[in-house]
Nucleic acid binder design. Structure first.
Lengths: 129, 129
DNA sequence: CAGGATCCAGGATGATACTG
DNA sequence: CAGTATCATCCTGGATCCTG
């Protein structure tokens, strides 16, 4: 007799979390409402906290802060503090691992644009099988 | 070719929802814990409700049902009912739009596998600046 | 077989005020 | 400037039972 029947499937584990599928693992790291947006902006290069806020005015300070910490913990971005006299300066940039996400992020962006462009024409061309 | 630094805070709207970035739009459609897993399995071909459950034993009936409806509403999958005498048969498959997600889903899967493979070697090679 | 109906816990996100 | 602390809310997803 086996004890637990639900955990015997192949789980993908990373950073202490387990995922039911390799796509879930990826989504666990870049999923959520803001992470891909942050990564998308960081593709251009390092940005400061305030610069990120300017580019994403809808996000709150708290949420941005939390998402940045999560991304940093997962080693997708790195946080650099410039120890000059105040005002404080902190910049965020992609890690090497984070840079490997570039094609993925770009494809996410492209697909979003594709859907935007096609949603009207698709309504007309509506092919049903 | 330079693009505007001052990107307007234009929202991306699809299916009545608005997103702050084109990547958000994509994530809004395939984000969450289960949608990419469902799509990943449907890449092989149509599957019945019970077959999906077998391939994703960790998901509950309710959640699978909700996610399938969301994907259907966003026109990424289609639901086909076979009107035979009971037992009822329903199959889910990708729409044409859903099929355009194939490269993206595969890339999500590949990146997840990459991270799994590299997480040990990265712990050693840990380059810090 | 393929879900719908409920109830519910926890996480994700937001608003606002405050700090080193 | 770059966050934290606190409180409130919303939403996702889980457990369980029920039905056409």
């Amino acid at each position: 007799m086996e004890h637990e029947k639900n955990q015997q499937l192949q789980d993908f584990v990373y950073q202490g979390k387990s995922y039911p599928c390799c796509t879930s693992l990826t989504m666990g790291l870049i999923g959520g409402k803001w992470k891909t947006v942050i990564l998308y902006h960081l593709l251009q290069g390092p940005l400061r906290y305030s610069e990120l806020r300017q580019q994403m005015p809808q996000v709150t300070e708290r949420t941005l802060s939390l998402q940045l910490k999560a991304l940093e913990k997962d080693q997708l971005i790195k946080r650099k503090v410039y120890h000059q006299k105040p005002p404080l300066k902190v910049s965020y940039s992609l890690t090497d691992l984070g840079k490997t996400l570039e094609p993925l992020i770009l494809q996410l962006a492209q697909w979003g644009e594709l859907v935007m462009q096609n949603q009207i024409s698709m309504a007309q061309a509506q092919t049903e099988k």
